[in-house]
């Protein structure tokens, strides 16, 4: 199987998968413990409107998509803070609106037929070197921000009111967190597609949460799981000649159900042991 590594596109795909895993492991952990998976999904889909804008106005991908996605994400963050009980509806509207806007703008873009699928499922086998550098910078920035604010983020995620009483700037940190999520999603969509972004942001941290004893350990386990899913998915897609993004997702989803089953059997075993005693 190692002979595939002689192809540059395969090496790039592996590096892209690794970098995406690190970003998803860190950011996804915050998404899961703060229970904002729906918000992250909303950001990922609203990003599609940004892609449409970028093509329609002939802007560079990063400028158009990041600008629009950050804008949508900040609105979602503000609504979540102001009216928590109505936030889900609002996010749903931006989710659908972003998608619709994106498709219409691509329709209206003259002479260009962009492949919708490549943004839904990504094209990890066609990642150019320049994207890898962007992802590396992204990885380092997210890493540094999280190290600097680690305990503040931890307190905000665990008990927001207490953090606020201690003078932690929870509102600012919340916007920073949502901003980082938006930035990560925009970066990774181009590589793995928006559906895979959501899968990688939520599934590995969900499994990791059960075994981790600290937030940092959860990030580490999530990153390792992300890597495992990406590498296994890529390998299977190469062997069976399948779509890489969808294969990675199915590996992650299979792992999700296996972890569920293991947990169920464990609790059964503990239960029957307790009865037996």
């Amino acid at each position: 199987m190692f002979e595939v590594l002689q192809f540059e596109f395969m090496r790039n795909a592996l590096v892209a998968g690794l970098l995406a895993s690190i970003i998803c492991g860190i950011i996804g952990t915050f998404v899961v413990v703060n229970r904002i998976a729906f918000l992250a999904g909303g950001i990922a889909h609203a990003a599609y409107g940004g892609i449409g804008l970028a093509f329609f106005f002939g802007l560079p991908y990063i400028v158009g998509t990041l600008g629009f996605t950050l804008f949508a994400a900040m609105i979602m963050a503000a609504v979540t803070l102001k009216a928590r009980d109505r936030a889900d509806t609002f996010i749903g509207v931006l989710w659908a609106g972003g998608m619709g806007l994106g498709v219409l703008l691509l329709d209206l873009t003259p002479g260009y037929n962009v492949d919708l699928m490549s943004y839904l499922f990504g094209s990890i086998l066609a990642v150019p070197q320049s994207d890898l550098w962007q992802m590396l910078v992204m990885c380092l920035s997210v890493g540094l921000i999280v190290i600097f604010f680690y305990n503040d983020f931890l307190a905000m995620s665990y008990d927001e009111e207490f953090a606020q009483l201690r003078g932690v700037p929870v509102k600012g940190l919340y916007f920073l967190l949502i901003g980082m999520i938006a930035l990560s999603i925009v970066m990774i969509i181009r590589v793995v597609g928006l559906i895979l972004v959501i899968a990688l942001l939520t599934i590995p941290p969900y499994i990791a949460e059960k075994y981790a004893r600290s937030l940092s350990m959860m990030m580490l386990i999530s990153t390792l799981l992300c890597c495992m899913f990406t590498m296994t998915g890529l390998w299977l897609s190469y062997i069976f000649n399948l779509t890489s993004g969808a294969t990675i997702i199915m590996v992650a989803v299979a792992a999700f159900f296996i972890s569920f089953l293991v947990q169920y059997l464990n609790s059964r075993r503990l239960y029957s042991k307790a009865i037996g005693d």
Binding site: N151, S157, R166, R213, S214
Partner: peptide, 14 residues
């Protein structure tokens, strides 16, 4: 939430 007892108490020292 993945957090230890000591880490919860340390929050008071933020």
């Amino acid at each position: 939430f993945p957090i230890s007892v000591l880490d919860v108490v340390l929050m008071g020292k933020l």
